[in-house]
Amino acid sequence: MLKDITLGQFFPGKSILHKADPRMKIILTLLYIVAVFMSSSIVSYIVTVAFTVILAVISRISVRVILKGLKPLLFIMLFTAFFNIFWTKGESEPLFAYGIIKIYKEGIIFAVLMIVRVACVLTGSSVILTYTTSPIALTDGLERLLSPLKKIKLPVHEFSMMMTIALRFIPTLIEETDKIMNAQKARGADFSSGGLIKRTKALLPVLIPLFASSFRRAGELATAMECRCYRGDKGRTRMTQLKYKPVDLLLLLIMVAYGAGVVLSNIYLGNLIVL
């Protein structure tokens, strides 16, 4: 059933990454992505891969899950790698030549590094953030991280409230879509034959009731929220208080050390193995 899909791909657990403050994890993810893209030498790539593997291990997310997460992007990765191989021109003699097709050593290296980089960014940001942080903690972290922006009248609270409600209602709406589709199928609706236009048109009997019911839900929810004294973030407190813990500092130090490692190996060890 559609109901079973997990949202935001969060895997509950007790690892150090699960325990870290969501605000810190957002910062760490940004730092990590910057560092990965700064890597420009073989040594810094090795550092990056090693670091990513360590992150994955301490997150205790299973290898299977991580590989599954990479799968959707596998095609794009291979596709760009393929173009890199054929389009990159090297200075040395081509390794392989057939007519106008020439493959250089640089092309292959470039393609491999590209795959490694994308795979690292994906894996790393997933284990730091999406796999180990519940969607609610994520929105919460984002709201508090961005709360200084409220001063310049950016609707940070409203945005995070919208996110929370969206997350809350996605499973409900998926279930509802399923129900309405079945109800229309029972009246002979056909969603699976005909061309694109016919199929799109066939969806109207699903979309119209779905919209109607979403509006109804929105109206009822708004009333219910008003009855619970909601009036934006005016005078609002929060039950869960976010506090940076030693764990967060530790993770930050590790991340900084990794970033420094990348920068230093780019500068000093960049020539150790020549591309």
Partner: peptide, 13 residues
């Protein structure tokens, strides 16, 4: 075999 679901009014369009 005609099937009327629970709360069928939500299927009207």
């Amino acid at each position: 075999c005609g099937l009327v679901f629970q709360y069928p009014e939500y299927q009207l369009f």
